[in-house]
Amino acid sequence: MGGTGGKGGTPWLHLAPALVVLGGLLVYPVYELGLISFLEYTQAQVSGGEPTSFQGLGNYRALFTDARFGQVLLTTVVFAAACVVATLAVGCALAVLLTRIRALPRLALTLAALGAWATPAITGSTVWVFLFDPDFGPVDKALSRLGLSGFDGYAWTYDRYSAFALVLLEIVWCSFPFVMVTVYAGIRAIPGEVLEAAALDGASQWRIWRDVMAPMLRPVLVVVTIQSVIWDFKVFTQIYVMTNGGGIAGQNLTLNVYAYQKAFASSQYGLGSAIGVVMLLILLAVTLGYLRLLRRQGEEI
């Protein structure tokens, strides 16, 4: 590879606008984030009421001795994992389904999925909360009419697990379309003979997926998995809106919301930044792990 014009400075000329923007508005702020995480930095320091002082690892020490933080960290990892698995399962299953149906139902499902995808996170969260509202929402009514009377007026956001389940549903709803569309496009690129040969062998759908499609789709799956991990680990709007900033007594806090609460609600910018740095490092580790995996398999990035 390598274009004909690939001499010395030219790639950097092409890259210059991107690097300037990213350097100024992403790298520099990240550097500042790291810096602030080492400082005693509350509202008083920000507005100049008190001098800034260097804390070393003080904020990090405070974090790791805070039982709450450990709990939130664990919750975040488990919750993100659940979201990723659920999103991938639903997205892949529906992608396979799309290949087995005629154009009209396919169009219906695709359009519905695009609708869910297009819905802004803030409106999506709001609508789901409204759907599950104990007084005015249709879901509780429908469930109790189906004979599950325990759900009449059930407050989904009161219990920790049902609140998380509700948020998980919303997240799967708005993020499975990306997986579905991408995987569907990937399946379409698999030569038809391969799939037909497998079908003629009488293999079940699950076997076809596991033995034929999944291996061929590996690059696609890697991309959607990385994206899902990145998005779901950082989930903010849904938790913030649906559980009202972290739930009763903070039972539904995830890292990003916790950082926001620390930084903005409590003005402990140093502590909030330290949480941000910890998140960044975790995601970095996940991504590097993936890259190594790719490399071992000789994939190109």
Partner: peptide
């Protein structure tokens, strides 16, 4: 540590 973000 010395070069903290500016104060207004």
């Amino acid at each position: 540590g010395g070069c903290a973000p500016r104060t207004p």
